[in-house]
Structures are given as structure tokens and as C-alpha cells.
Design a protein around this nucleic acid. Structure first.
Lengths: 240, 240
DNA sequence: CAACCTCATTACGTCATACGTATTCAATAG
DNA sequence: CTATTGAATACGTATGACGTAATGAGGTTG
């Protein structure tokens, strides 16, 4: 065993996480085309870890359906269709990779399918506390809608949509909060958004908060549909 | 090492899969309340496998956010909010467990959010081959809509919705094919469906196939929305 | 000549052991 | 009563050995 201190790599969460952080992005980025076979020993040698660590990382990749391990064959990279594209880890890796635009488009489409329904449910089921949160974040959007306050705007935007999804009282919807956060963050980071958030969007958010507070499900859904469709349109304009 | 043949357990995919098949359902069923600590040695002893195997299984559970492994503490069961509820494995486990009704409701709601949008996209993007498949499965539904042919009906129903989701050309939507299959299968298995599939549903499916073939996006979306809302209503009637 | 069977090879699967290390909790000193 | 120290603990990692199934070469057979 060499000094085993490792130059740096990842002090975060263990060697297996380090390996995952190396293999996951590489696979999702297509550096290993589907059908590529990786050997455990080779990986252990390449990344200077024991086979134990490699096997644990492979097990995780396998649970994400990124690879398949077969005896006497090796660890085979699976085609995209097999991947667990809802796994937050996979989403993160892909958003950081080459096919980011395609990924962003898929996720935005998912948003535009789910969020309007979530808004309708929220209007029917939101607690007073959640209504208050919505109003607060809507006001936050108004405050940060002008000038160089994109980071602040982003925080309120994410929080607003998280509350909507959570207030829908649907587990599956609530879990998309992370996805929405990733999409919105990505949009801001890559300046796939005008420097001054459009006032129309801000107004719509305020109105959604109102509709939810008043229990107007139909209006909440319609307004949210407008918001997400605008997001889709924005993407169509600024991406191939 | 004892005889190590194991009464049966799972010859399917290795010992670690066996362990997963035991721990996953137990955790998702709430047999280990959040905060419960499991020790690897204890698990290894209890299931008569080596610590290596336990660790690999734990890594997978960890990637699903069902548990968290911390030094000197053990493997802690995480609260439901942390779980990867989109993981097909987790979905399967939960559908087989106690809170099946709640799970079925959440998933059906997700369907009713996504499938109408998918139908709209399908009407715009479906290939001639996919249109043919849709028509074929719609006819299959008609043929099996009466008498004791629920299994046959189910096959065509699942296939139909899979084609719609695939034809939407959206990765995230396409991946929900398994979810829809699980929901429809569950509905049939538990007789949460009338013995004779309703004729109205069959007609709607035929009309969706038509709308997609003719590229009538608005109609396809509207019809599919009716289908999924009927599914929700059905659930409301037959479940608390 | 083609189809089938045999068997050595290979790389994953599992086990056992040893040691490293972060974390916790209790005992002690101030 | 607070703060520091230190021993116990359970996970993290490495290593070496062996089991086992899948593969493909090579020989056998119809």
C-alpha cells in the first residue's frame, strides 16, 4: 500500500464516493460508449484503490442502471435508455456534462407537465403557513426583480416552486423540488435568462400566490401553466 | 463458512441482491422506523453473509437515500422525505408493502400530470410506426374489453401508454413507462377495476390513437386527460 | 462441412482477517 | 459547571484466497 493519503481527490465522503464522482460523470457524458467493458482490477489499479472500493462504486452505478456487471465479462456500460434519469445524482452529472441542453429541455418539459397540476392541488390543500411562505417569496421576487440581484431572485424563485410542490401533498411532486432547483440554477448560471428577470414572470408568481391563498385552483393551474410554458419558450429561443 | 447454499433466498443475482430484497421492502414498509440504526456486523450475522456483501447492499440503499452510513454510529434509516421515490426499485418495494394505496394514489396523480402532455407531444412527433402500434393496441383493447380477458386487456393497455410516452420523445416521460405499467398492473391485480373494463375507456383510447395519427395535439391531450382523470376518480371510489 | 460437446480460461462473487480512522461519550481537570 | 482528554466503537479500506459461472477455443460427431 502506497502512502494512501491520496493527493486530494475527495475528502468528502470516502474513496468509493471519489470513484463515483469520477466514473458517474464520465459515463453519463458518453466517454464510455454503451457496450464498453470496464474491468474491476483495471479500475482498482487506475484509481489506486482496492477492489473492495471499486466493487462498492460499481454496485451503486448498477443500481442507477448505468452499468451492468456480469461474470467473466466485466462491467458493461448500458445504453442511455436504461439509465435512471430521475436519480438526482444522474441528473446532476448530466447537467454538468455535454448534453446539458437536451437535459435542460427534458426537465423543463417535465416541469411544465407537473407544476400546473401541483399548483391546482396546492390551491386546494395548502396550509396557511404555506400560503404565507408563498406570499413572502413572491414579494422577494418583486424586491429582487431589478438590478444586479439575480442570486437573490434565484433563491426566492426556487423556494417559491418548492413550496408549491410541497403544498400539493404529493410525494412524487414534492421530490421534484430538487429538479426544479437544478433547472432554475442552471438557467441562471448559464445566463440562459435575461439579466433582468422579466416583470411578467414576477407578476405571474404574485398572482399564483394569490390564487393559492384564495383557493382558486383553476386560476392557480392556469397561471402556473403560463409560467412553465414561458420557461419552455425561453429555452426554445436561447438554445438550439 | 457454513454450507452457504442457503435454503433458497435468491439465486437470481447474488447474495447482495438477496440482502437488498430483504432490507429494501422492510425499510420502505416502515419496519425500521426512521432513525433506527443497523450495524453491519449484526446484519452480516443475521443474514449469514460476509460484511463485504452487507456493505455493498448498504451502498445501494444509501444511493437510494433509504439509509445513511456514518462512522462510529452505524447505518441509520432515513425519513420518508429523503427517499428516492422515483427509483423503480423503491416504487416496486412500496407497491408491495403496506402503504400501497397511498403510493398508488401518488403515482396515478403523476400519470394524470404527465400523460396528457405526453399525448400532445406524441401527436406532434410520433412516427408512422408508432401510430400503427397505437392503433393496433387500441384494437387489442377493443377485442379484450369483454368477458374474462383482463390479462390480455392489461397487456394492450400497458403497451398503449408505453408507446405514447415513448413517442413524446422526452426521456423523462419515456422512463415513466415502468411506473404506468406498475400502476396498471397493480390496479388489475387488486381488482381495483371492474371485471369488465369500461367501454368508455376503450373508446377514449381508440380516439387518442386517431388524434395522434391525425396530428391533432389538442384533442389527444384532452382525451388523455379524460382517461387519467377517470383513473383518479376510479381510485377515489375504490380506496379510502 | 456443420453442428455439437468438452474443458481450460477468465473476471466477477464471496469470504476472512487485519488495520486505519473518525466519532462518540464518559471521565477527568480546571 | 465547563472544557479537555482519552478510550471504546463501528464503519472504511486493503489484502489474499478461493468459488463459480460464462465464454470461447478446440476437438468430436452426425
Amino acid at each position: 500500500m502506497t502512502s494512501q493519503a491520496e493527493s486530494r481527490g475527495s475528502r468528502d465522503q470516502g474513496l468509493h464516493a471519489h470513484l463515483l464522482a469520477a466514473l458517474g460523470p464520465a459515463i453519463t457524458a458518453g466517454e464510455f460508449p454503451p457496450g464498453t467493458v470496464l474491468r474491476t482490477d483495471e479500475l482498482a489499479d487506475r484509481y489506486e484503490v482496492s477492489r473492495t472500493v471499486v466493487r462498492e462504486a460499481v454496485r451503486v452505478l448498477e443500481s442507477m442502471h448505468l452499468v451492468e456487471s456480469r461474470r467473466r465479462v466485466g462491467v458493461t456500460v448500458l445504453p442511455t435508455e436504461a439509465w435512471n434519469v430521475y436519480d438526482p445524482q444522474v441528473i446532476t452529472w448530466r447537467l454538468a456534462g455535454a448534453d446539458r441542453p437536451r437535459q435542460l429541455r427534458s426537465l423543463t418539459m417535465l416541469r411544465s407537465a407537473v407544476e400546473p397540476v401541483a399548483a391546482r392541488l396546492a390551491a386546494e390543500l395548502a396550509t396557511p403557513e404555506e400560503c404565507a411562505e408563498l406570499t413572502e417569496h413572491a414579494l422577494g421576487l418583486v424586491r429582487t426583480s431589478r438590478g444586479e440581484q439575480l442570486p437573490g431572485y434565484l433563491v426566492h424563485d426556487i423556494a417559491f416552486h418548492r413550496v408549491i410542490l410541497r403544498a400539493s401533498r404529493n410525494e412524487m411532486f414534492a421530490r421534484l423540488g430538487d429538479v426544479v432547483a437544478a433547472v432554475l440554477t442552471g438557467r441562471t448560471e448559464h445566463e440562459v435568462m435575461f439579466r433582468d428577470p422579466r416583470q411578467a414572470a414576477v407578476t405571474l408568481h404574485v398572482q399564483v400566490a394569490e390564487a393559492v391563498r384564495e383557493g382558486d385552483a383553476a386560476t392557480a393551474e392556469r397561471l402556473m401553466r403560463t409560467i412553465t410554458e414561458d420557461a419552455m419558450a425561453e429555452l426554445d429561443v436561447l438554445a438550439p
